[in-house]
């Protein structure tokens, strides 16, 4: 084994410890969301953006805040509102101390290259114009303003939306959803002891204090990009697992070709699109990161199983005829695919 490989192995081992600390740190703040937190850590080490969705009051914002605080770097938060416009993210105007009008850099620009987390709360309350700006920020990690381009090499966008309220909201366009690596659905914990803990432990009453109580900046955020590349380089994907991953994606797009049956659904006409090149690349990247988190050097089907829902669910577009029960049908489709495609 060459020295470079040994060094990479050692570095990845060190970083694995850091990832475990990060995971543990967030888990201490948020109760009963171990799997979601694990997926968030996978996304962080793939440098992917995350969209959280769930009922009201399940802890979406607290979770994202805790993750942002644990990661370190500059953190910016903005609330999605109906009157928010793209320029509100880029600059703001005010009367300066000298009494003259002034233009200053907005939340997106003011941290420069140190911006680590841009947290967009209630993203579906913002107008499509804002979503459009976000598309570029997420895809290219840059934005043009004041006749120059600003780059955010360490930027990761965390966003959340609640799925109950639909009034005065704007559904995210498919292109914007596709740019989020993962869409995580947060449900409230089911275990009785966890619910009692949330109910009676005073530690969980004050979200601000709870987030403050967690360790801050447990990772050197500005090294994450390099580590993410290293993980992708070092984790091995065999030909067998490549075939498996390929057929999983194909089956999600064309379930009829794999004889996947869903009750009362004509699978021939079910899927209109989704799991494009970006989606399948995200699936492979997150499978590798998951394998690394599990301290393996190779990707196995288990890695695909762990991440496929978070990666694919928001990327599958079904025939509007089935929209009445779309979420359940997509869930059933993914289950059908996982239960049908064998490996080897």
């Amino acid at each position: 084994m060459s020295n470079v490989a040994v060094n990479s192995d050692n570095l990845l081992h060190d970083w694995h410890q850091k990832a475990a600390t990060l995971q543990q740190n967030i888990n201490q703040t948020i109760l009963g969301q171990e799997h979601i937190i694990e997926l968030m850590v996978v996304a962080i080490f793939c440098r992917g953006h995350i969209l959280l969705e769930g009922d009201v009051g399940v802890g979406k914002t607290t979770l994202l805040r805790a993750a942002a605080e644990s990661l370190g770097g500059d953190f910016e938060r903005i609330e999605g509102t109906i009157d928010l416009m793209p320029h509100d993210l880029v600059y703001y105007t005010h009367i300066a101390n000298d009494g003259k009008p002034a233009v200053n850099e907005g939340p997106l620009l003011k941290h420069g290259q140190d911006l680590s987390i841009f947290f967009f709360n209630e993203i579906n309350r913002a107008r499509p114009q804002v979503h459009s700006l976000l598309l570029r920020v997420m895809a290219e990690r840059s934005v043009s303003a004041f006749n120059k381009t600003f780059h955010f090499p360490h930027l990761q966008v965390f966003a959340d939306r609640n799925r109950i309220e639909k009034d005065e909201t704007f559904e995210l366009p498919a292109a914007a959803r596709d740019r989020f690596m993962m869409e995580l659905h947060i449900k409230q914990p089911k275990a009785e002891d966890q619910l009692k803990e949330l109910m009676f432990n005073t530690r969980y009453y004050d979200a601000d204090k709870l987030v403050d109580s967690a360790d801050k900046a447990v990772l050197p955020f500005n090294q994450l990009n390099e580590i993410a590349v290293m993980i992708q380089d070092q984790i091995h994907v065999s030909e067998t697992i490549q075939n498996y991953g390929f057929h999983l994606c194909q089956a999600l797009r064309r379930p009829q070709d794999y004889d996947i049956k869903i009750s009362d659904i004509d699978t021939e006409k079910l899927v209109l699109g989704g799991m494009g090149p970006r989606g399948i690349s995200y699936l492979a990247r997150s499978a590798r990161a998951h394998a690394w988190l599990k301290q393996r050097h190779t990707v196995t089907p288990e890695d695909f199983h762990a991440v496929i829902r978070a990666i694919s669910k928001h990327r599958i577009f079904i025939n509007p005829v089935y929209n009445y029960n779309g979420e359940a049908i997509i869930e059933e489709l993914i289950n059908g695919v996982l239960n049908t495609i064998p490996s080897p």
């Binding site: 196995t300 089907p301 199983h305 996982l338 049908t340 064998p342 490996s343 080897p344």
Partner: peptide, 23 residues
Amino acid sequence: FYQALQAVHLAFNRLAKQALFAH
């Protein structure tokens, strides 16, 4: 050996009535 493993996996899949994996 690949085919032999595949044959045994297939037997497990048939008994489980789905694709069965280690986890």
